[in-house]
Nucleic acid binder design. Structure first.
Length: 283
DNA sequence: ATCCCCACCTGGCCGC
DNA sequence: TGCGGCCAGGTGGGGA
């Protein structure tokens, strides 16, 4: 589910409350997430203090005292929730609450209906963890730019849609924001990567447009608190707003929102996942 | 090396 | 109301 803007939103929602809190107790549902918890997970984090929360791509990183780091991925349906004040006593654990951290004055709960997410414990530099080390650049970072992408794209014949979903090439994008970015840059999702690169290996203008659109859509989505579909909400239960800004995602057979365009948004399958685009605006 | 496909899950919705 | 089928924001791992 959650793509970079949603994970960023979760991070911001958690930071104020959980940073500097000490974990006094831990409870697990006992159900297996995508990866089972390491043995002694609960014991190891007991009495550790959360020093900071960060995000890398779609991962949340909880930096604890004594160099422990919790790596959390929300998969498709994972959410974090905070319970505090008088709500603590009346909180009823739901069957999809898989991990609960108890602080003196609150709870941090990981809930995940589909259990595609996972929570791991590592030490020191999480960037070196085998799940994080292959990740490509952040879309809002300096290393993500048209010339660097051209280097990766040249000579490779793979659809742009699938390539942009590949976390090794650029990290943090998912199905929604790839569709939206391609619409904004007026590029067909079925176009091949090498079509955006000149013979001399330099980026074509369209590739600059694409980079710009990715940047823009991610910034805007973060600004609006991400997109709330189905089960996604902020740590405080509030909803994001960006779903109201979708131009193509989830709009099959609806009219293109580009002024003057009368085309209907199409849905196709690429690698068995839905792609939405305007057949007239995107070339 | 590169790319595609499956599997992992629950639940909501639609048509019969 | 029930059942089958399809859909969903992701991705590691195995096979082509």
């Amino acid at each position: 589910m959650p793509e970079l803007p949603e994970v960023e939103t979760v991070k911001k929602g958690l930071a104020d409350f959980v940073v500097n809190k000490t974990i006094k107790s831990v409870k697990f549902s006992g159900k297996k997430l995508r990866f089972p918890y390491s043995r002694k997970f609960g014991k190891k984090i007991l009495n550790k203090t959360i020093l900071n929360i960060d995000r890398r791509a779609k991962y949340l990183l909880f930096y604890l005292s004594e160099n422990y780091v919790i790596i959390a991925h929300l998969g498709m349906s994972g959410t974090f929730k905070i319970v505090k004040g008088r709500d603590i006593k009346k909180y009823k654990i739901s069957k999809h609450d898989h991990m609960i951290l108890y602080f003196d004055d609150g709870l941090l709960i990981y809930n995940d209906i589909r259990r595609f997410g996972y929570i791991l414990l590592t030490a020191n530099c999480p960037d070196k963890h085998h799940l994080l080390s292959p990740l490509g650049p952040e879309p809002l970072g300096n290393e993500f730019n048209a010339e660097a992408l051209a280097e990766t794209f040249k000579g490779r014949k793979r659809s742009l849609k699938n390539t942009l979903l590949d976390q090794k090439i650029i990290s943090g994008l998912g199905n929604i924001y790839v569709c939206e970015a391609l619409f904004r840059s007026k590029i067909l999702p079925t176009k091949f990567t090498n079509e955006l690169v000149r013979k001399n290996g330099m980026a074509k203008k369209k590739l600059y447009d694409l980079v710009e659109s990715i940047n823009e859509v991610i910034r805007e989505a973060i600004f609006f608190g991400g997109s709330s579909l189905k089960d996604f909400h902020h740590a405080d239960g509030k909803l994001g707003y960006f779903q109201n800004k979708f131009k193509v995602y989830g709009r099959e057979n609806e009219s293109c929102l580009q002024p003057g365009c009368k085309a209907k948004i199409k849905r196709i399958k690429q690698s068995n996942r839905s792609t939405f685009y305007c057949p007239k605006c995107q070339k």
